[in-house]
Amino acid sequence: MFMIPEEPKGLDADESGTWLEVAALMTRLPAALDAQLQRDAGRSHSEYMILAGLSMSTDRRRRMSELADFVAISLSRLSHTAKRLEKQGWLYRIPDPVNGRFTLAVLTDAGWEKVTAVAPTHAAEVRRLVFDPLTKSSSGT
Rank of each mutant, 00 (worst) to 15 (best):
A24S: 14
A31H: 10
P97T: 02
L129D: 01
L54V: 08
K83T: 13
I50F: 04
E6H: 13
L51D: 00
F2M: 03
A41T: 09
P8M: 12
S57A: 15
F2S: 08
T27C: 07
G140Y: 01
S44P: 05
R93M: 09
D12H: 11
E86M: 08
V130L: 10
S79H: 13
L37Y: 04
F102C: 03
T18S: 06
L37G: 06
K87I: 04
A124T: 12
M56C: 08
P97V: 02
E125T: 14
V130C: 10
P8S: 11
L78W: 02
E7M: 12
P95H: 03
E66V: 07
A82H: 01
A110T: 13
L29W: 02
E15Q: 15
R39D: 14
T108F: 01
A32D: 07
Q36H: 15
P97D: 03
N99K: 11
A13R: 15
E15Y: 06
M3E: 14
A68R: 07
N99G: 08
P133M: 01
T135E: 10
F70R: 08
T121W: 02
L37A: 05
L107P: 02
A24W: 02
M1R: 08
L75M: 09
R63G: 14
D40G: 14
T103V: 15
K87N: 09
P8G: 11
R60N: 14
T116H: 13
E7Y: 08
M49Y: 00
A68L: 08
G111F: 05
A82V: 04
A72R: 09
V22P: 01
M64H: 04
T18Y: 09
S55W: 08
R128C: 04
W112F: 10
S57G: 11
R93W: 01
G89S: 07
E66T: 09
G111R: 05
R62S: 14
A24Q: 09
E86I: 09
R43W: 11
L29F: 10
E15F: 06
T58K: 15
M64K: 15
A124H: 08
E47S: 05
L129S: 02
V22E: 07
A35G: 10
L91G: 02
H80N: 11
T135M: 10
R62L: 15
P30Q: 00
T116C: 07
A72Q: 10
K136T: 11
V106R: 08
R60Q: 11
F70H: 12
G10L: 10
M64V: 13
E125V: 12
L75I: 09
A119L: 14
V126Y: 15
A35P: 02
L11H: 09
F102W: 12
K87P: 00
T116I: 14
T81F: 03
R93I: 06
H45E: 04
A117Y: 06
A117F: 07
M64P: 01
G10H: 04
H45C: 03
L104H: 00
R127V: 07
K9F: 10
E47G: 02
